[in-house]
Every structure is written in C-alpha cells, then in structure tokens.
Design a protein around this nucleic acid. Structure first.
Lengths: 176, 176
DNA sequence: AGTAGTTTCATACTTTAGTATGAGAACTTT
DNA sequence: AAAGTTCTCATACTAAAGTATGAAACTACT
C-alpha cells in the first residue's frame, strides 16, 4: 500500500479545495456580503441621528434588506434547476392503410392517364406478380386480351416492360 | 356613454379584488408574518435580559431569520417555474426514409434467405424496372451472368418470375 | 494448401412478354 | 341510329425472360 499522501497526490487536494470553492462560491460571497452590510449598518447606527422610536424602523430595514438578499440568493441557487428538458419521441407514421384521400388521388391519376377499368385490373394483378396467362385465367379472358391490355397500359404509362409499369404505378400512387 | 359604475358592474370590482388577493396572497401572508416576528422580537427585547454587546447578536439573528424567510418566500413563489419543463417533441418518422433499424431488418432477412450481395443488387435493379440487359450494363457483367443471378434469386425466394420476386421482396422488406 | 462460397461467363433451349395489326361485340353518348 | 369507347379475341412475329448445365476465376477461411 502506498502512503496516503505522496508528493504527487498533493495537487489533488488543491483541486478538491478549488472544487469546493467553486461549488460554494455563492454562499461564501453571500456571507461576506452579509457581514459587510451589518458593519455598514453598525456604522450608520452611530453616525446618523437615531430619533426616538426609530429603532424599530432600523430593525425593519434590516429585515427588508436581508429578505431581499434571501430571495436573491434563492434565485441564484435555483437557476440551474430551471432547465428545460426536451424529450424527443419518435412517432412512426405508417403509410400502409389506404385513406379515402389516397383512393381519391388514385382515381384522379387514373383519369389523367386515361386508364380504363380493365387496364387498372391488369395492372393490379401484374403488380401482384401474376403472369399474363394467370391474369387471363383470373379475369376469365384469353391470353391475347391480357396482352392487348398490357400493351395499351405500357403505352399510356410510357414504359416498355411490366416491371417498369409496376414501379411507375407505385410512384404515381396508382397502386398500393 | 354609460356611467362608470353601475349596479351590475360592481361585482366585477369585487372579482378583481379577489383576483388581486389570490395573486398576492403569498406576499401579503409574508408581510403579516414579518410584522408578527418583529413584534415577537420587540417583546423578547424587553422581556429577555439583553447583556452588554449582545445588541449586535440580536441584529444578526434578525438578519439570519429574514434571510431564511426570503429564501423560503422565493422558493414558494418560484415553485411553478422551478419545475423541469418537459417539452415533448413528436418526431414523425416516415417509412419512406430508411431508418437504421429497417436497414438492419433488411440485412437480417437477406442473411436468413442466404442471398449474396450480387443477388441483392440484381434484385434492387429488377425492382426499378430494368431489363436483364440493362442490369448487365449497369453492373458491367454479361447478360448470362445476370440471368444466372436472377435464376438463383428466384430459387431462394421461391418464386417463378421477376414480378413475383419484386412483390415478395417488398413484403419481406428486402427492398424499399 | 485445400475447401466452400461467390462471381463470372458460355451455350443451348423453353417459356413468357411484348408488338403490330385487324376486327367483332358490348356499351355509352350524342 | 351513328359515333366513340371499351372490351374482347386472333394471328404472327420479335424480344426478353427464365432454365439447365458446366466451368473458370476469385475470395475467404481454416
């Protein structure tokens, strides 16, 4: 075990004292002020003419002054507690559910592009990953019919492939 | 112009006075307390034996007492202000922007399915609507290479077509 | 150094997607 | 009823997608 106080440990004590002074600076300053004011009042007591029954006034003034000092001190000391804590709460906003507004926007976009109902159906099923044959079976039409619909669809969407159509339709909010 | 004070207006004045009393209740109470203590001290001054040079001690005690009162008063009055104000800021996190957690989930799903980096790249470009040839050009590889990647990708995702792969990847949050 | 996994490429083949063109049927609007 | 639109279907063709198989080169890990 090393000795409690070595040469190199002394600076730590000085630092501790400095920390103590830092912490209670306000209190010490206040004590000094209090003593100073008391001395001042003592001086005034002898120098000024204290008329009869003015002793109570003197006491009162002391009370008022020190009350003010107390208030000032309390405000000073409490200052750090008045910090405002800002708590950031992450609120996840999911876009999964289709609102009425979104459905309306879909319809509007459909109108703008001049897409027919059947073309929209084909587009929807395309996006679900169905092949043309599967779409034809689902809609009870022939394969050429689905091809015709998809061809017109690509033309209206200004794309070349079904995958592009799906991506573009997604961006235009045509499909969910 | 109506007269300044009518019968029906008087209650307002009473209410104003009540509001005033409510607001400065603490201060008035403190004033009363101060007067009371001063009177008590006055009494003590005559009843207790004040030995010589104890007058300074008397003044000091008054100072200490009123300082304490000042501190107490300040604490009482400021109480609502000294509370730590918690400001809750709602931060909307839209799913369009990829969060760290989402990226992590993507990586996890990728690991689970055993997808290689190249396969993920191909998948990403597929979802953007690119053809195999375009993907090949983008990645500086040959067309057969892209086909091989996509074939393995379909096998791992258990799908038959690229459109199915895109839809499934979307559901699995593999792609944005 | 060897093993496993990834990436790359090729060839041959089948299947699906997409285009072009035309045309009939059903429906709505004027 | 005529015109326009949508939906339907067909044929023929081209382009792209997808499969199967094999193999070389590279990377990483033991």
């Amino acid at each position: 075990m090393p000795p409690l106080l070595t040469y190199h440990q002394q600076p730590y004590i000085r630092r501790a004292m400095r920390r103590f002074l830092q912490k209670y600076k306000q209190v010490l300053l206040y004590a000094a002020l209090m003593v100073g004011i008391l001395l001042l009042l003592q001086l005034l007591q002898y120098k000024l003419v204290l008329i009869n029954h003015s002793h109570e006034l003197y006491i009162l003034s002391i009370a008022v002054v020190f009350t003010g000092l107390g208030i000032w001190l309390a405000l000073k000391l409490i200052k750090p507690k008045t910090e405002i804590q800002t708590v950031v709460v992450e609120k996840h906003v999911y876009l999964q559910e289709l609102s009425a507004a979104e459905l309306e926007a879909m319809e509007k976009e459909k109108q703008k592009l001049g897409l027919s109902n059947r073309e929209m159906e084909v587009l929807q099923l395309m996006a679900e990953g169905l092949s043309n044959q599967e779409i034809a079976d689902r809609l009870f039409v022939s394969l050429p019919t689905v091809k015709t619909h998809s061809s017109k669809l690509f033309e209206k969407l200004d794309v070349k492939r079904r995958t592009q159509a799906i991506e573009k339709a997604r961006q235009l909010k045509l499909i969910a």
